[in-house]
Design a protein around this nucleic acid. Structure first.
Lengths: 212, 212
DNA sequence: TTAATTCAAACAAACGTTTAATTAATAATT
DNA sequence: AATTATTAATTAAACGTTTGTTTGAATTAA
């Protein structure tokens, strides 16, 4: 589907970049227009307003991310352990490949109280939890996972730790003045650590009984 | 120390409330002045500028939080397990009792690249990791914790999951139209779940060996 | 009397948005 | 195929608000 013209996508790309770097409020339409090499009026012309441009960005990435996550539900995995590991992989890959949007969403979600953005974010949070819930219950039915685990806890840990790790990376990279390639390599390294240890930790939590 | 007068504290309290609810950029000095029942000029008069008011807020909470966290280092605990649990308790208690500031810091940390705020946040992140590192190494020396655990991972999980849980709470509360007392009760309930399961999960991760 | 506080008013700058004129692209007509 | 009519895209300029901040007079406290 060619929902957006090339020019519109150019504006959206630039807006996403600036929004994620400087924040929505600190990015002016003139900033976007200059960076995207278009006239200031084009944003209103194509999207109606600055806020509707933000909504367009959300709709554009949101549906992709949710369907990606949803698809795991219908995958046939051979074991509950693999299911958990697969969820972690998809989560990390999705958040990592859409870092900019994720950073933007994380930031704006804390001050949005209603409207289309609120609804989209809420739906995403709900889907995340459903996903984790399925995997956990599957393992519990098979008798390999403990019964007394918390799904809200697990989904908070999942999404929270990934975002915190990425936020820390950005901070350390800025502090160490890493740029471009070396910065991405640094991030990638950290993300792989996260991937391995998150899997190990989840499995340990889901199976380990401290009473021997 | 009476570093700030009562009027100044009144402005700072109001500013923190509004900054955390609406975000720094979306809160105008006139908003603060009106809510704090003072003249608009008073913010500049007392703090110099809006940004310096934000810095004052940071300095005010930051030193308290860091010293609180730091104090665990000098506590004598009887076991490495207790040490880990104690750190989780202090983290959760501190973040929970200073929710507004924490929300503000989380939001602004993603767009600050330099200056006093950047330095404070970086110092806090470093201290968090040092704290976790000490507890982990203590347990490793005693032979009760695995050697192949990641400290950057653990501190990301710690801070990330607490913040994610609180963010989710705010979202669900808003969606269910919870207000005041019932909202706080809901939060408290979730935080206690987090406390219990985070401890269990950390202990499991630090001790459990999947190869029997 | 001196200094600190409070205030309404005004300031310039930046903001999102609109306007009205112009150019480019597309469709229709000869 | 060439010309005209119509729509879409683009532009510089201007609009009305809102922003953070300052001013200078008035009020209060020391």
């Amino acid at each position: 589907m060619t929902e957006y013209s090339e020019k519109q996508l150019q504006i959206m790309d630039t807006a996403l970049k600036l929004f994620s770097e400087k924040g929505y409020d600190k990015t002016s339409i003139r900033d976007i227009a200059q960076a995207a090499d278009v006239n200031v009026a084009m944003v209103s012309y194509y999207f109606g307003s600055k806020e509707k441009l933000l909504e367009a960005l959300f709709r554009n990435h949101f549906s992709f991310i949710t369907t990606t996550l949803e698809n795991i539900l219908y995958e046939k995995e051979s074991s509950a352990f693999e299911k958990v590991e697969r969820i972690i992989d998809v989560f990390i890959n999705t958040l990592f490949s859409r870092q900019k949007f994720n950073q933007l969403m994380m930031r704006e979600s804390s001050v949005v109280n209603e409207g289309p953005l609120f609804d989209m974010i809420l739906e995403m949070k709900t889907k995340n939890r459903k996903l984790v819930e399925r995997a956990v219950k599957s393992g519990q039915r098979l008798g390999v996972f403990r019964k007394d685990v918390s799904v809200v806890f697990l989904s908070s840990v999942m999404i929270g730790s990934v975002n915190q790790m990425l936020a820390n990376c950005r901070y350390e990279a800025r502090s160490a003045k890493l740029e471009g390639e070396s910065k991405e390599a640094f991030k990638k390294e950290r993300i792989e650590i996260l991937r391995i240890h998150l899997k190990r930790m989840f499995i340990a939590y889901l199976t380990y009984d401290s009473n021997k």
